[in-house]
Design a protein around this nucleic acid. Sequence first.
RNA 1: GGCCCCGUAGCUCAGGGGAUAGAGCGGCCGCCUCCUAAGCGGCAGGUCGAUGGUUCGAAUCCAUCCGGGGUCACCA
Length: 589
Amino acid sequence: MRQTGFDHMNLFAEFRSLVLAELAAMAEAGLIPAGLDMANVAMEPPRDAGHGDMATNAAMVLAKPAGQPPRALAERLAARLAKDPRIAAVEVAGPGFLNLRLAASVWQGVVRTALLAGRDYGRSNLGAGRKVNVEFVSANPTGPMHVGHVRGAVVGDALAALLAFAGWDVTREYYINDGGAQVNVLARSAYERYREAHGLEPEIREGLYPGDYLIPVGEALKARYGTSLLNQPEAVWLADVRDFATDMMMEMIRADLAALNVRMDVYSSEKALYGTGKIEAALEALRAKGLIYEGILEPPKGKTPEDWEPREQTLFRSTAYGDDVDRPVKKSDGSWTYFAPDIAYHYDKVCRGFDELIDIFGADHGGYVKRMKAAVAALSDERVPLDIKLIQLVKLWKNGAPFKMSKRAGTFVTLRDVVDQAGAEVTRFMMLTRKNDVALDFDFDKVLEQSKDNPVFYVQYASARIHSILRKAAEIGIAVDDVALAAADLTLLTHQAEIDMARKIAEWPRLVEIAAKGNEPHRVAFYLYELASDFHGLWNRGSDDTSLRFIQEGNPAVSSSKIALVRATGVVISAGLAILGVTPAVEMR
RNA sequence: GGCCCCGUAGCUCAGGGGAUAGAGCGGCCGCCUCCUAAGCGGCAGGUCGAUGGUUCGAAUCCAUCCGGGGUCACCA
């Protein structure tokens, strides 16, 4: 395990280590057997505050393997832990929990740590620099991004930021599906707009893309090619128009992503895999493992498709890695299925040296998960784990009714429609207020509302209040920079309400690690809501109890300590919002 | 029919094997001569879909059902 300056931030991990050290000493002294499995020993914040600041299940987990009653084991461990000056009290409770109450100095130290670490407070080395590739969005380059892509874009971007914060070496990547039939459809659609640009009547036949967004493409084609493509057979212009149009579509998509403040590190092209031997090489790698064969699939169990006919295909033996059936990599006409270049693409990611892969897919691609995991497992000899996050639907609401409209496309709501109405930051936060695998309601009225109904506002309001206090403090001559506040006499923070605030701040580094382990960026949004709630509560305590007001007239020392706590809260809000891609509010308007 | 996801308070949802299951909204009752009441506090509200199993301990893990959604070979 690498030791770094950040490791001390997770207080729970620190005290867990203390417990493990004491257990090791007990083993050394022959009080418990040596070599016990400590993996399930946990140190957690108890649900009930009456149970102290931290609780460990060590005695219960180890009772059986140690051959001792849990409470007896707990008593022995408690006696040892009680000697640590950071621990104010230890009690054995329930079936054998060890509840720790920590010295106030520990919580005061948390405030100081947060102030000194600033935006880095909570940063972790959990990832230990491992290379992870997060592939997300990967929308077809056939039109503007629509609302269905927004959630995936936000989740992927926030997850990437979270993993970077937790110590991974992150690459954000977009896979351009520019190799299939749909880009030919795009080309034909754009060609009609090109004819239109020349004053001809476009023939937007069934199956072509009707969107207005192709009109500028037609005009650009006219500017580039003049009349030279008119009245020419498709074979003459298809490839050129396709490349021209997909390039323009990707420009549009990049601009859409930019409007959402999403930045990719790498764009990978499906088309670029063709003709380079990469697909063949990837399949050859599988063939060498005996995983490619010619065969005939059984019809799907239960419901057989109307046009089912037995057909010999080139198949990938994905069942060897947990899939339900083997999967075709070649169509009957000998061309690749979509799966084949995707295998090659993931092989490429493995070859580029990533230690972990993450794909963010729409929930409608759920059926694709097992085969993709099988492919990566086979290609990496099970070295590289692939986690696939499926993003459920977003239901848009406005004026109490489902919202469907698009200025440009008629049928779907574009990313721009959403960002124009809600703003990028509000959109980003709202998209993270649900786990990725449950549907999310996005209500245009609610996201713009300034009330606690709206979690974005609620967190931002806390941030604004914090800045308001800092401004006020500065006005009366209190130094509010982080270094000065960190040097304040924090032993003056003794009220339980203040300690509780510091406890919540102390949970942040732990939360980062939990969220990163599970690839669950939504946890950050929920935590920030709780943190804001605690802060609003503390703020209002000042109404009843003037000793809890942050600015104590005529007592700069006490004021500084309280403002240090306020600022530390702001530090965490800033760090958390940064992961979500949201700028903390300085004031409400 | 196979596979995947979901099922927790009236509603919308949190809850990495822990103790008496939480939050917001809605309902009821309170709090502004006081740092922003765009806020806060309290009360009421639950067989965690069902049944078995694993475990000292299950909303959480496993199995089988029941509901709801998604998906199912030459689309991507």
